[in-house]
Amino acid sequence: MCRAARHGLILATNARRPLAFIFVPYAIMFTYSFFTRTFPTMEPDFQFGNYAALLIDPQYYQVLLRTLKISFLVSVSALVLAYPLAYFLAFKIASARLRTALYVAVIVPLWVSYLLRAYTWKTILGSEGVLNSFLVWSGILSEPTDLFLYNQFAMVVTLTYIFVPFMVMPIYTALEKIPRSLIEASKDLGVGRFRTFLAITLPLSVPGILAGATFTFCLSMGDFVAPFLVGGANGAMIAIVVQSQFGTALNWPLGSALSIVMLVLTLAIISLSDRFERTGRLDLA
């Protein structure tokens, strides 16, 4: 016991250091968001002008709304693609080894160079790209179209592509946990497959859906690589605006205020889904 205590003390003092390292930066950012900008630097101050600017200037709140819309579309499309895959993995593959292998195959792209995978979509969707040249070659289009790239469609495709594995993981975990006896019981009672799915499988997989959607929504909200590569002029997202405040626009206080808004939104969504998930769990108990 004494050994454990000694051990603990060492670990606890060690653990506090990364804690400070993670929290202090956010605190500094929060402070900056009240500063006044004096080009090219800023002055310490306490005023809400930066936050007011975000509410009044349509340039900012419109981008914010567009970001929310795109993140929503991405979450929905990722869900549509991920659910059948997760369902197939969890229920339709008998061999445990094959199931693990396929699951790994789905997860692996998540860790493989995000930048390069996003960039490849640019070469696929571009006006001289793979998709266009294929469509022209096969005679579906008479000439290449530029409808695929540099718009919100391209962003939804790219971001959906990137976040599908994030969606599959929690849904698969939730489906795996469903006791098979529940589904068999429903079938024994004469309920059809589709109704069994609606009444048992789907509700029990809601925590997984929520977790996946939260991840996907938050991460696409903060993404600035996809809008940069495939978004074009009307595809700008909030992260691009934040980035330019710290770069070319050189307005750190405004950029900090925008980041705080993003931070609060993200944390709110995370804790909201946390709460839903918990009530969902209570209902089942």
């Binding site: 950012m29 600035f224 980035q243 980041s259």
Partner: peptide
């Protein structure tokens, strides 16, 4: 503060990397 610590460690995973980057730049 264990619960807080747990959250703090996991924060960079769920938060947009952009915010981590900017806050570190500020630091």
């Amino acid at each position: 503060g264990k619960a807080l610590f747990r959250r703090a460690v996991l924060l960079p995973l769920a938060l947009p990397g952009l915010i981590t980057g900017i806050s570190m730049l500020n630091l």
